[in-house]
Amino acid sequence: MKEVKIKTRDLTLFYGAKMALNSISLDIPEKEVTAFIGPSGCGKSTFLRTLNRMNDLIPNVRITGEVLVDSLNIYDKQIDVVNLRKKVGMVFQKSNPFAKSIFENVAYGPRINGINHKARLEEIVESSLKKAFIWEEVKDRLQDSAMGLSGGQQQRMCIARTLAVEPEIILMDEPASALDPISTAKIEELIFELKKNYTIVIVTHNMQQAARVSDHTAFFYIGELVEFGKTKKIFTTPDKKHTEEYITGRFG
């Protein structure tokens, strides 16, 4: 196993009085793909959102335990959440382009970081779109509204937008769940390519997808981490009966 990038220790999360995550401890290795699977409502998305503190935005959320990114506890009072999110980027389930041009969507992150030089922005936008395998499709209409792209294109553009901030970790929350099979295949291919340079954590409800793209898989059930290990092992000889039942499709 490579170096550990994210490490959680006894991470517990409450929505008001309801416990949504129960004492999760997990090591996510660097520059590999880790998939979270489990039935809906099992806490996998909630867990993903704790990794860049997106849950901060929801009222009544209480978190105990630790999340260490590069051995730095991100729930420490001294942590700057804004800069943390530049380091830990996120791609959402529903593609969410801004009502701006494609160029401005991708340039959004760099602009916020104070880059306003036109040539520099163009360079970043181009390289980000290339990395997200969408440059060829949009290079002639960068000034068109991003809303005019197809669902799959929008999602890849959103990935490019995340890449433009140059994060080290990319969290993906069911990035292909709303897409057709061809677009899904493109996203999966992209994930495979991206893991050379980024640590990727992906939540998916699609088991085949987890088996195809990930190196490690964590199975969640009702707020608990049931099993975590090499994807190959989880999908062939899981330790827990529960995991096996889910993977073979007996529930969920």
């Binding site: 730095l72 991100i74 942590i79 700057d80 800069n83 943390l84 380091k87 970081n113 340079n197």
Partner: peptide, 23 residues
């Protein structure tokens, strides 16, 4: 990809993740 790192707009260090006061 090699010249990527020196072009980075933002380098993550312990310092950069320290809480910042933004006017």
């Amino acid at each position: 990809m090699d010249n990527q790192t020196d072009k980075k707009a933002f380098v993550f260090t312990k310092e950069s993740l320290k809480k910042k006061f933004r006017w």
